[in-house]
Amino acid sequence: MMPSLLAPRRQAPSNPGPGRGSRRRLAFPLVAGFLTGFLFLPLFTLTAGAYTLEEFQFSDPAKTEEFRRLTEELRCLVCQNESLAGSQADLAQDLREEVYRLLQSGKSRQEVIDFLVERYGDFVLYDPPLKPSTYPLWFGPLLLAGVGGIFLFLTLRKKRAARERELSAEEQQRLRALLADASTPTKDKA
C-alpha cells in the first residue's frame, strides 16, 4: 500500500443477519457470539503484529524482545490507530526498518524513541509524556472525576438529611391514615 494522506478506510465486515422468521430466536446467540468475539480480539491483533516482524532477526534475543516492544508502543502516522508493529502501511515498514537499524547499531530503547520523536513529534508515542501541554490530558479526567465526586457527595448528604428529618405532627397523622388505609384489603386489588 502506498502512503497517502487519504489512506483507504477499512471496510467493516458486513454482519450476516439472520432470516426473517428466526430473528428473535437468533438474536441472543448472535449478540453473545459477537461479544465473545471481542474477548478474542487482542489475540488476533497480536498475531497480525507477529506476521510482519518475522523478517527482522537479531542475534540477541533481548534485542528481539526490545524491537517487538518498541514497535508495539510506537504509532504509525499513516494508519493512525495502528502501531508500527501492526500497520501494513508502507511508511510503517520504513520506520520498522529504521528502528531495526538503530537497534542493530547498538542504540538504546530511549535513543530510538528520541530519534522518532525529534522527527515526527510526540504523536508517534502511544504513551504521551507528562509535560505542561499534556497536563489536561493526564489530569483532566481526575479533575472531572473529583468534581463529579464532590457533587455526588453533596447531593447524597442533602438527600440523607431530608430523609432523617422528623415528621411534623400533621405529617405523622397523615402517615397513620395512609397505613391504616393500606392494611384494609380492597376487592379490586386482589
Binding site: S4, L5, L77, V78, D94, E98, R119, Y120, G121
Partner: peptide, 13 residues
C-alpha cells in the same frame, strides 16, 4: 528509499 524523508519527518505526500 525514504532515506532523507525519515529525517525530515515526512509521513505522506
Amino acid at each position: 528509499d525514504n532515506r532523507a524523508g525519515i529525517h525530515w519527518g515526512v509521513y505522506g505526500a
